[in-house]
Structure formats: C-alpha cells, structure tokens
Design a protein around this nucleic acid. Sequence first.
DNA 1: GTCCAGGGAATCA
DNA 2: TGATTCCATGGA
Length: 287
Amino acid sequence: MKYIKEIDSFEPKDIFECGQCFRWNKQDDGSYTGVFYGKILNVKKESNKIIFDGNATEEEIERYFDLQRDYSKIKSELSLIDEYLKQSIEFGSGIRILNQDLFETIISFIISANNNIPRIKGIINKICTKYGQKVEYSFDGNKVEEYYTFPTPEELSRASIKDLRELGLGFRDVRVYETTKLIANKEFKLDDLYKMTTDEAKQKLLTFQGVGPKVCDCILLFSTLKKFDVFPIDVWVRRVMNELYIKNPDETKVDKKEIKKLADEKYGNLEGMAQQYLFYWKRETSA
DNA sequence: GTCCAGGGAATCA
DNA sequence: TGATTCCATGGA
C-alpha cells in the first residue's frame, strides 16, 4: 500500500544518510528502501510530497519518522543560537530523528565503535541475513525480492562469539554477545528504560558491555527512547566543535567534558538535535 | 606500509 | 578521576 503525505522538513537523503541509521539503501531512482519494525518500505520524494510504499501501516510510518513533531519550530529555535548552527541546519534541513527499535539501536551502535559507516552497514546486513527473518516482498510490477528483519534478542542469542567474529565484528564480538545475552535472558527488561529520566537510563545503559558514553548517547537519541538532552561526541563532533568554538591546534587534545559543557550551555535540552545537524554538515562537506 | 573509522575496556598513576 | 594502550577489520 502507499501512504502519500505532504510533510514539512523531510528529505530522504538527509534522514537516511545523516548517520543515525544503517539499514536504508539508495535505489537507482534516488528513493530509499529499508526494513524497520519487520516491515518493508520505500521512501520517495516527488515535488513536495513524500510517497511511502510498502507493507508498513500509517501508524508505524508516523511513529518511525517522528511525523508528529514540529521540526520547523525546533529548527527556528536552534537557528537563533548562532550562525554556525544556523548554517548546518540549512544544510541538513530535511533531517528527522527516527524512532528506531531499541534493541536494534543498541546492537548497531555497539558495532559502530571505532568503525566506519560503510563497514557498519555491511556487518549489520550480514547479521540480519543470518539471524533475522526472511521477508519476501514485491513492489507493484517488480519481481519478488528477499529482505531480512533485524534479529530479536532471542534470535541473535543463537550466535556464538565465534559466529560473530566470522561476520567481521572484530573485537566487538564479545560485546554484542554479552549484551544480547543479558537482554535475551531478561536479566534486564528494556521496557524499564522508558520509565526513566535521561540520567537514569544513561546509568543503566552504561552497564551493558560495549556501551560507553558515546554509544549510550546515540542509543538514547536515535531509538524510541528519544532523548534530546544528550550530546554524542565522536571524532566528527569533536572536530566540528573544536573548529567552530574551541580552536585547539591539536584537536585530539580537546577534553570531551569541555565539549559537553559547551553544548549544554549553547544548545540546552535540544543539544541532541544540534549535534546531528553539526555532525551531518561537517561529515558531508569535508569529503 | 600507514592512517583512519559515529569508542570501549583494561590498566596504571 | 585522568591518561595510555590495546583491541579487529577493511578501505584510502
């Protein structure tokens, strides 16, 4: 079925290539196809309309793409802060922060540690093909294609450390294994995180193997937990914050606490949004 | 061969 | 707490 809607602040390229997700692939016609909540979807923009084509429901689409949120308001608010942020927001004006499945986001960002985006996508794709469920789907007029869902904790817990190593996870194999086991064994119920404040959820997530400060912030921001008062600091964010504000001649010497303090003061409780515009802008313009 | 990637954990002071 | 070092892998 197709769901067609005029949506403010929605650009497929900005959404799918700003580094928040790893399972959407660009098609020959410029649209993107991906799998989320076990559903298949193609997203295409034609003039000012967004065309969602696949087997996801309207409710699932509304939720996943955060369509109930007023991004124009957020952007105009952030644009007032300074010219740098305003510039990055103009560059990535079609970004929306997705509501991604919590377990998928946790595992994906554990894999992201000291890794690069193309390889992260490749590893996750292998994990889905081997441990997820096959879904056959054909967009009207086209042949049937095979897609794979991201595995549930139970499905992924079938993988041994050795299995994971063979998929190319490297030193991240034990981390994925241990955290998957923890969640699959119900030693901790992920749903409890929804009742917590940002700081409480952060404390809990940091006890998971492979979840440090940066991965933790990404999980809080990019999953259905949807916390905007976090500021993930990776090499790109450190780079852009140093170039814009701190101006240390050796960027590797910049203290992350100094960056975090600066972000708190400048961007307030929308710092997670600000971070994503800055990250996308810096990464796309320094090829 | 060297450097780098959406860093985390172990170790040591 | 704070600073170093090691950790697999593949592309540039």
